[in-house]
Amino acid sequence: MTTARDLAIIALDTADKPVEQGDLSLALAGAEVFDLLDARALVLDGDRILPSAPAPTGDRLLDEAAGTLVREEPYESVEDWLWRRGRGLSAAYVDDLERTGLTSRRRGRRIPLRTGRTELVDSAARRQAEERRAAGEPVLAALAAAAGIGEEPAGELAEEATAVLAAVGDAVMELEAVRQRKVIEDAAFDNVWRGY
Rank of each mutant, 00 (worst) to 15 (best):
R194H: 05
P74R: 06
D23E: 15
G22H: 07
L36G: 02
A142V: 00
E160A: 07
L89K: 08
I9F: 07
A147L: 04
V121R: 14
V183A: 07
V192I: 15
V121W: 01
E130F: 12
F34G: 00
G58N: 10
P51W: 09
A129Q: 01
S52A: 09
A11Y: 04
R99N: 10
D47M: 03
E72I: 11
E152G: 03
R179Y: 13
I9Q: 07
R126Y: 06
A142K: 00
A39R: 14
L97I: 11
A177T: 10
A4L: 00
D95H: 10
Q128T: 13
A161Q: 14
I111E: 09
P51K: 01
I49F: 09
R110F: 14
A27N: 10
P74A: 01
W193E: 12
L102Q: 10
I9W: 08
L89V: 07
L50C: 11
L175E: 11
R109E: 10
E79N: 05
T2M: 06
G101Y: 05
Y196N: 12
D38N: 15
R194P: 00
A4C: 08
R126W: 15
L26T: 03
A177H: 14
D59M: 12
F189I: 10
D16W: 15
L7N: 03
Y196K: 11
V78Y: 02
S52T: 09
L28H: 08
L61Y: 02
D23C: 10
R109P: 02
G30H: 00
F189C: 12
S52D: 14
G155P: 06
I49Q: 00
E160T: 13
D170R: 10
D95Q: 09
A11M: 04
T57A: 06
V19H: 02
V78F: 03
V183R: 13
A187C: 05
A154I: 05
R133C: 06
R110V: 11
D190I: 05
R114M: 14
T118M: 13
A146E: 12
T2C: 00
A91L: 09
V178D: 14
S90Q: 03
A91R: 12
I111G: 00
A147P: 03
T68C: 09
A29Q: 06
R117M: 07
T14F: 15
E159D: 12
